[in-house]
Amino acid sequence: MDILETDAYDRRQRRNMSCALFFSLLPFFLSTVVYFYLWTPDSTPSIMSAGVKSAPTLLLAAVVLSWNGGHSVLGVVGGLIFSAVGDCCLIWPELFLHGMGAFAVAHLLYSLSFLSSRYVSDSSSSSSSWIRLLYLILVILGVCFYIFLYPYLQKVPNSDLLVPGVGIYIGLISLMGALAIRTRHVATLLGSLIFMVSDLFLALQVFKVIENMQNGNAVVMVTYYLAQLLIAVGDVKAVEDKDNFSKWKRS
Rank of each mutant, 00 (worst) to 15 (best):
S18Y: 12
I210F: 01
L189I: 01
L179Q: 08
N244M: 11
T223A: 08
P56A: 13
L133H: 00
D199C: 01
R14P: 01
N244Y: 11
D235V: 09
V34W: 04
H107E: 00
V209I: 06
K247A: 11
T223R: 07
A187N: 11
L193Y: 11
V222Y: 02
Q13N: 10
R182T: 09
L230K: 13
G78Q: 08
D241P: 00
A232Q: 03
L25G: 04
Y119D: 01
C19R: 13
K208E: 05
E240N: 10
K249A: 11
L226M: 15
N217L: 01
L193K: 03
W248K: 15
L138T: 14
S49F: 06
V236A: 07
F148I: 04
A203W: 04
V33D: 02
L38E: 11
M100W: 04
W130I: 03
I194W: 10
P157A: 12
Y135K: 15
C88F: 11
L26E: 02
Y224M: 05
I3H: 14
I131S: 09
L134M: 10
G191D: 06
L141A: 06
A50N: 05
N16Y: 13
E94Q: 07
T44F: 08
Q205S: 13
S18I: 03
E211C: 00
T44S: 01
Y110F: 11
Y225E: 03
M196P: 01
F207L: 03
N212R: 14
D199H: 08
L136A: 12
E5G: 02
D160G: 00
I173Y: 11
P41F: 01
L230P: 04
V236K: 10
T188R: 12
L141T: 05
R14Y: 04
M48Q: 15
L25F: 07
I3C: 08
Y150K: 05
L136W: 11
V222R: 02
F195A: 03
